[in-house]
Write a protein that binds this DNA or RNA. Sequence first.
DNA 1: TTCACATATTTCAATATTTGAATATGTCCG
DNA 2: CGGACATATTCAAATATTGAAATATGTGAA
Lengths: 93, 93
Amino acid sequence: MRDAAEEAATVLKALSNPSRLLILCQLVEEERTVGEMEKSLGLGQAYVSQQLARLRDEGLVSATRDGRLMRYRLSDPRVTPVIRTLYEQFCSQ
Amino acid sequence: MRDAAEEAATVLKALSNPSRLLILCQLVEEERTVGEMEKSLGLGQAYVSQQLARLRDEGLVSATRDGRLMRYRLSDPRVTPVIRTLYEQFCSQ
DNA sequence: TTCACATATTTCAATATTTGAATATGTCCG
DNA sequence: CGGACATATTCAAATATTGAAATATGTGAA
C-alpha cells in the first residue's frame, strides 16, 4: 500500500503540470508528432521536447522515428483511465 | 481546456505526494480523525497536520471540530473518482 | 556534402516542495 | 486555574521543479 502510493505519487507528479497534462490528453486520443503537439498547444519546440523527455524517463510515453518525425504514444496502460477520469471531472463543463 | 488543465494540474500536485495520497485514500472510505490517520500511516503528528493544512488550502478536504478531535473529510467531489481510479490501477495487484 | 527541417539536450536562475524540529493553540477535566 | 491531550503553525535547510535560451543531433533532399 505504501509502495503503491509511492508509485502512484510519482506518476501523479508527472501529470501535475498543465503542459504535460495536455500532451498526455492528446495522446489518449491517438499518436502524435512533436510538431503537432507544439502547434495545437501553442508551445515552443524545445519546451515540448523537454516535457516529452521527462514523460519518457517516467515510462509514460514512448516514441518511434518516422522519417524526420517522432511519433509519440502512451506507454503505461495505467495512465489512460486516470486521464479519462480527469477529463470527465475537469473538462465536462 | 487550458484553464481546465491548470486546475487539474493543481489538484494533481496536491495528490502527488505519497503521504497526502494515502491520507486522501483513507478519506474516500470515511471521515477520519488526525490521530487515526497518524496511527494508520505511521507518521508524526506535526507532519500529518501539515499535509492536512495543505489539502485544506487547496480545498480538497474540510474539517470540523468534535471536542478535542478534528474530523476530516473530502470536500471536492471531483477528487473521489480520481482516487478510485488510481486505486484500481495501482492497488489491485 | 550541404542545407533545411524536426527533434533533443544542456544549462541556469527563479521558485517551489519536502520534511523535521520547535513551538503554539484549543479543549476537556479535576 | 493547571495539566494533559489533540491538533496547528512556524521555521529552515536540503532538494526538486519550472521554463527560457542556446546549442546539438538526426534525417531527407538536392
